[in-house]
């Protein structure tokens, strides 16, 4: 199992408590399910079946509804992700500027495929569609806020180095 999951295990209790508090606070807001899922994914890193069941119970809705929403949206994932999620934009502008080659290089460097986590749990690779920085194409995003623009395949190792610790 990946490192990511173990750290989750260790903090299990507190994470559930925090999620529960969030649900309590937003319960009155109609249609809060998606917001709750966003929160849960930010806490746990992904949305395993137990977390979904917990949410369903707390919100008083069927588990199938929660599952239906989780599977509909690309942003939600039921697979654990790396500590650093490396997102490669494959939107039109990035594609035209050669993002596929950046992605390929990344897969080679990290020796994993798309949606897979590296052995040490440090990285996972994801394809995304347009990060809204098309003028900087091709764009790579690590985590939520570290944007890299005009990336060439050769820059990939340099970018990863910062996160290798």
């Amino acid at each position: 199992m990946s490192l990511e999951q173990c750290t989750v295990c260790a903090r299990h209790e507190t994470l559930y408590q925090e999620l529960d508090a969030f649900i309590e606070k937003n319960r009155h807001r109609p249609g809060a399910l998606i917001e709750v899922l966003h929160k849960a994914q930010s806490l746990f890193g992904f949305l395993p079946a137990e977390v979904q069941a917990f949410i369903a119970k707390q919100l008083g809705i069927p588990e199938s509804t929660v599952f239906g929403v989780v599977t509909f949206y690309h942003y939600f994932t039921m697979k654990p992700r790396g500590q650093n999620q490396v997102k490669v934009c494959l939107g039109t502008a990035c594609y035209v500027k050669g993002a596929d080659r950046v992605l390929e290089r990344l897969k080679e460097e990290l020796k994993v495929g798309i949606e897979e986590v590296t052995q040490d749990g440090r990285f996972s690779i994801h394809e995304v569609r347009c990060l809204g920085a098309c003028s900087m194409a091709p764009v790579v995003l690590i985590g939520e806020k570290d944007f890299f623009g005009r990336v060439t395949p050769d820059e990939v190792p340099k970018i990863l180095k910062k996160y290798r610790g």
Binding site: V69, Y73, H74, R129
Partner: peptide
């Protein structure tokens, strides 16, 4: 949550309501 079709206004409304 990353679904292009949600830009279509009726799908967007469904999504605002917390649904698929």
């Amino acid at each position: 949550a990353g679904a292009f079709v949600c830009g279509e206004e009726t799908a967007l409304i469904e999504s605002v309501e917390g649904k698929r």
